[in-house]
Amino acid sequence: MAKLIIPTPLRKYANNTAFFETDSFTVDQAVEALTTEYPELKTHLIDNNGKVRSFIKVFVGDDDIKALDGIDTELNENDVVSIVPAIAGGVQALYEQIKKWH
C-alpha cells in the first residue's frame, strides 16, 4: 500500500494522524480517499475547481508530481506520497504597512 504523509499543520483535521495508507492506484485516488476519510482536510487541500490548491505540492518519493503525470501519477506498492505546503513570506514595504495601520 502507498503511504501518504499528512503535513503537521493539517493533522488537526485528520484526527492528529501523520500517515494514511491507501491501496489507490493514482495520486488523485489517494487524495480522494484521504479527504473521504477526513472530510475537514478537503478545503485545505482542494480548491473550488476540484484541483489541489496552488500552494500545496505533492511529491511521490522525491519527485514532484508536476514532473510526472500530475494528479494522474500512478502509485506503486510502498510509494510514499508527501503533501507539502508552500512556506514563504517576507517583509512588507513600509508604505504598505503604514497604509494598513491607518
Partner: peptide, 24 residues
C-alpha cells in the same frame, strides 16, 4: 517556521499571510 525581517518590524506581512498554514 521562523524568519527574519531585515530593517523592518516583526509584524507579519501580507506576504507572510499568503501561504500561512494553520497550527504553525
Amino acid at each position: 517556521v521562523y524568519h527574519s525581517h531585515p530593517q523592518h518590524p516583526a509584524i507579519a506581512s501580507v506576504h507572510d499571510l499568503k501561504s500561512a498554514m494553520p497550527f504553525f
